[in-house]
Amino acid sequence: MSNPSDALGRLMAHALARAVALLILWLVLAGSDLADLPAGIVAVLAATVTSLRLLPVGPSRLSPVLLGPLALRFLYQSVAAGIDVAWRALDPRLPLRPGFVVYSVCFPLGSARNAFAALTSLLPGTVPAGDEGSRLVYHCLDVDQPVVSQLAAEEAALRHAIRHD
């Protein structure tokens, strides 16, 4: 990491990965007609430069291999979340025990923690509603649920998908 050529190589690798992702987005939107490609190249270049300026390359990144399973996991969770809130809403007894749960999160302030907060906002019955130093305050639909252990499991899953270069 102290070697400048290493740092440059890492920057190029990150820039390339982001450019490829944005190019795929362009191709999905505009199609692969050759006449549209010049505009696509301009768009991808502008977007990649913006992305590198807004979100500089850090020491850690999401592993592309583990991104798939992570996405599937949270997709499953968001389905469970929808079903959970649907039965609570439709049950005549309205089974709610709303309240706040404080969770000590290991991720430092920054992108990893923001990603964790965003992903856990999709979990059944929880939404991040504030910070207290190193702890996140969650608003829960049912505080009798094992919220803390569930959050810990999600944190482990996300940590597993983050690679440190």
């Binding site: 982001r18 944005l22 987005l25 939107l29 768009a43 977007a47 992305s51 807004l54 923001n114 965003a118």
Partner: peptide, 23 residues
């Protein structure tokens, strides 16, 4: 949270914006 969104969304928005113009 807001800064996180403002770092993630603009690259996507630039591609979409140029696409909407171009199409």
């Amino acid at each position: 949270t807001l800064a996180f969104l403002a770092r993630l969304l603009p690259p996507v928005g630039i591609v979409v914006g140029i696409y909407v113009f171009w199409t």
